[in-house]
């Protein structure tokens, strides 16, 4: 493989990486070839010592998506990072992606509960006839206020949980990148 072939393979495989990032990555390898040539090595020798472009790209993509997820927090970016890591091996697809999906769903369900609890007093004010609460002997307003407070507390707890969960996932993914096979 010569310089042109190596760079073309790399360029093709780097699909999905933003232009600026891709340009910088390509630049690193182009420079590597130029410097190697100056030192008297042939293009073939340099390409061989660099390694297989397709497997280099796997590492590049996984590293890229994780650093981005760290810089720009968001579920979308975490999922991208997870899938990139999962792409390095089937083991990770099963053991990273599925627990992650379940955890996200549980968090989502808990948020809905919190929001409904918080909304109860307002719903009762807005629709006094259609919302009824089984309160037994306790005055209804107490039960409603209680639910509202529980909802508030739950929401705060959830926000902290989400934050912690997010950090945990990122740390776990980074650990995976280092451990996982795929040169």
């Amino acid at each position: 493989m010569n310089k042109k072939e190596f760079l073309e393979k790399l360029d093709k495989a780097l699909i999905g990486i933003p232009k600026d990032e891709k340009k910088e990555v390509m630049r690193d390898y182009e420079d590597h070839f130029s410097i190697g040539s100056e030192k008297g090595r042939t293009e073939e020798e340099i390409a061989k010592s660099l390694g297989d472009p397709a497997s280099l790209v796997k590492t590049i993509k996984a590293e890229y998506t994780i650093t981005r997820a760290k810089r720009e927090p968001g579920i979308k970016n975490i999922f991208r990072a997870t899938i990139a890591v999962a792409g390095l091996g089937l083991f990770n697809l099963i053991f990273v992606l599925i627990p992650l999906i379940i955890a996200v769903e549980l968090l989502f369900a808990a948020y809905i509960v919190a929001v409904v609890f918080i909304a109860v007093p307002f719903l009762m004010l807005a629709y006094p006839t259609s919302v009824s609460i089984l309160s037994g002997d306790t005055p209804t307003w107490m039960v409603v206020a209680g639910l509202h407070i529980i909802g508030d507390v739950l929401l705060v707890v959830l926000l902290y949980l989400t934050k912690g969960f997010y950090r945990l996932i990122l740390a776990y993914l980074q650990m995976n990148i280092k451990i996982i096979k795929g040169e």
Partner: peptide, 11 residues
Amino acid sequence: SEGTIYPLLRR
């Protein structure tokens, strides 16, 4: 594989 050094350096 010398190519692996660049992703490492970027990270």
